[in-house]
């Protein structure tokens, strides 16, 4: 002890109280931070789990499905399709563009998951919820599976025959007969883009959207990564210089996958009861 020092004998109770208060405050802050971190981790985990659930829940890869190599005849220069992601009007999209592949339709019982030439699959025409039948005219390898153009939602169409893909909006259309006569394919859906511009829809419902499109003579499937309205989707396609587009089945409760580097990448799984009328748009590598 020096003459220049002072010492409070015994700890000052005020300081004790202050110290206790500070400790309590620090513990409180620590607890809050801990809770926030735990909540963040739980939310992240549940989001990851739900994503995994949505893709793995009902799809059980069988031997030969996943990891099958695409046909050896394909080289880098003959890739069946390209995949790119882009942003249009502030929303994100992915685009599967047909390169060295053919467009076809396939039915649920006909799709061969071991066929390595099938490199992209998504669902095409809508199915009625009450009777599980395909909505609108449907031609499958020249055979008529469904008839009619019940309403405006089915004025759009896609006809695939003789190596050609025609997208339009009309009823009747001669392309239906062409598909039938040429053992081709035909289905109906909402028209989104045609020579008159893009369609507008009343519904403000947002969902994951998909469309079969033609741009500069190239066939592509464009789908939204974000949920958007059908009107916004149609407009985006138009802004992307798509000349013709017809809707494909939307949402995420559908089968969709593609093959990349010889491995199947599953985007979505259809968890509904299997239905023989479930129909697919596929890219078949040449």
């Amino acid at each position: 002890m020096k003459d220049t020092d002072i010492e409070v004998l015994g700890e000052d109770p005020r300081k004790l109280r202050r110290k206790k208060r500070n400790i309590q405050l620090a513990l409180g802050i620590f607890a809050i931070v801990l809770i926030v971190i735990v909540l963040f981790l739980i939310l992240r985990q549940s989001k990851r789990t739900s994503e995994i659930t949505s893709t793995d829940e009902t799809y059980t890869p069988t031997e030969g499905d996943v990891g099958k190599t695409v046909s050896d005849s394909l080289s880098v220069d003959t890739i069946p399709f390209t995949l790119e992601e882009m942003e249009i009007n502030g929303n994100k999209y992915r685009c599967f563009q047909l390169v060295n592949a053919e467009l076809e339709l396939a039915l649920y019982n006909d799709i061969d998951t071991t066929d390595t030439a099938i490199v992209f699959v998504t669902q095409a025409a809508n199915i009625r919820g009450d009777n599980n039948k395909i909505i609108g005219d449907f031609i499958y390898k020249g055979d008529s599976m469904a008839k009619g153009c019940p309403n405006a939602s089915t004025l759009g169409f896609c006809a695939i025959f003789g190596g050609k893909t025609i997208i339009g909006k009309a009823n009747p259309t001669t392309f239906l007969d062409s598909a039938k006569n040429d053992s081709g394919f035909f289905f109906r859906q909402y028209a989104l883009v045609n020579d008159n511009g893009f369609e507008s829809f009343e519904s403000e419902a947002k969902s994951y959207r998909r469309a079969l499109c033609i741009k500069d003579g190239n066939v592509m499937v464009v789908e939204s990564i974000d949920k958007i309205t059908l009107s916004a989707f149609a407009e985006a396609l138009f802004d992307y210089d798509i000349s013709n587009a017809v809707n494909l089945m939307g949402g995420k409760n559908l089968d969709e996958w593609y093959v990349k580097d010889g491995k199947r990448e599953v985007l979505f799984i259809n968890t509904r009861e299997p239905n023989p009328n479930r129909n697919y748009l596929i890219f078949r590598a040449k």
Partner: peptide, 27 residues
């Protein structure tokens, strides 16, 4: 005085802090 300071610290539980040692020779 140092010993008295010790007595204060050990005996006065609540009131010890009333006492302040100032330098070597004053409490």
């Amino acid at each position: 005085i140092g010993e008295i300071a010790d007595y204060i610290r050990s005996q006065l539980k609540q009131t010890a802090s009333s006492f302040i040692r100032v330098g070597k020779s004053l409490i």
